[in-house]
Amino acid sequence: MSVGTRRILVAHLAERRMSVPEIASELGVSKETVRRDLHNPPPAVEPETPPDVAPPAPGLVLPESKQLRQDLNVLTTAFRGKPEDVARFAIHQAAQPIRQHWQARMDARAEQQEARS
């Protein structure tokens, strides 16, 4: 186990209120190593942003992923539009059948209620 990994584990176990002897026993290291790791915590890790991912457009913000970016690029190229317009269109197209299904269910319920009256 690397020193960095061990320090992360020591910090995590200490946050869970484990004692120095318990942490040392759990990780198979000396109490002195645990004490030293507690005095030298691991550096904060910044989340890594892939260089090929553009920043999100203003407005609707979705968690960025490589696959999402590729799909948006395919749609943008196919429809020759701005990413925001293509996203609006795709969301509208995906929602339309659901909207129609809900409307049909509401119409069927209304008909049932009228038949009961």
Score class of each variant (00 low, 15 high):
Leu75Asp: 11
Gly81Lys: 04
Thr33Ile: 11
Gln112Phe: 10
Arg7Ser: 05
Leu62Glu: 10
Asp71Tyr: 13
Leu62Thr: 04
Glu64Phe: 01
Ala95Phe: 07
Thr5His: 13
Asp52Lys: 13
Pro83Lys: 05
Ala94Gly: 05
Arg17Leu: 03
Leu9His: 10
Gln67Glu: 14
Ile98Pro: 01
Arg105Gln: 14
Arg80Lys: 12
Asp107Trp: 01
Glu48Gln: 08
Ala115Tyr: 01
Leu9Tyr: 10
Pro55Ala: 09
Thr77Ser: 15
Leu27Ser: 08
Ala90Glu: 00
Pro42Trp: 05
Ile91Asn: 12
Ala104Gln: 06
Thr49Asp: 10
Arg105Glu: 11
Val10Asn: 05
Val3Ile: 14
Lys66His: 14
Glu64Arg: 11
Ala57Tyr: 07
Ile8Gln: 15
Ile98Cys: 00
Arg35Met: 06
Leu68Thr: 01
Arg7Ala: 03
Asp71Thr: 06
Val61Asp: 10
Leu60Val: 14
Arg69His: 14
Lys31Tyr: 02
Glu64Leu: 09
Glu22Ile: 08
Pro41Arg: 08
Gly4His: 06
Leu72Lys: 12
Arg16Ala: 15
Gln100Asn: 09
Val3Gln: 14
Lys31Met: 07
Thr5Arg: 13
Arg105Met: 09
Thr76Lys: 07
Pro97Arg: 00
Pro83Gly: 00
Arg116Trp: 09
Ile91Trp: 12
Ala24Ile: 06
Ala94Asn: 02
Pro50Ile: 12
Lys31Phe: 04
Ala14Ser: 15
Arg116Asn: 07
Pro47Cys: 11
Val20Lys: 00
Ala115Arg: 11
Pro41Ile: 09
Pro43Arg: 14
Arg109Glu: 09
Pro56Trp: 08
Val10Ala: 00
Pro63Cys: 01
Leu27Asp: 01
Phe89Met: 14
Ser2Ala: 06
Arg109Gly: 05
Leu27Pro: 01
Arg80Tyr: 05
Met18Leu: 15
Glu15Tyr: 03
Pro83His: 02
Phe79Leu: 11
Ala24Pro: 07
Phe89Thr: 09
Pro47Gln: 11
Arg80Phe: 05
Glu22Met: 11
Lys82Arg: 02
Trp102Gln: 07
Gln113Thr: 07
Phe79Gly: 01
Arg105Ala: 12
Ser117Arg: 02
Arg109Leu: 13
Arg116Leu: 08
Lys66Ala: 02
Arg16Leu: 15
Leu9Lys: 11
Gln70Ala: 10
Glu22Tyr: 03
Glu32Ser: 02
Ala94Ser: 10
His92Pro: 07
Ala90Asn: 00
Arg17Asp: 08
Gln93Thr: 07
Gln96Met: 13
His39Asp: 02
Ile8Asn: 11
Pro50Gly: 03
Leu38Arg: 05
Ser30Met: 03
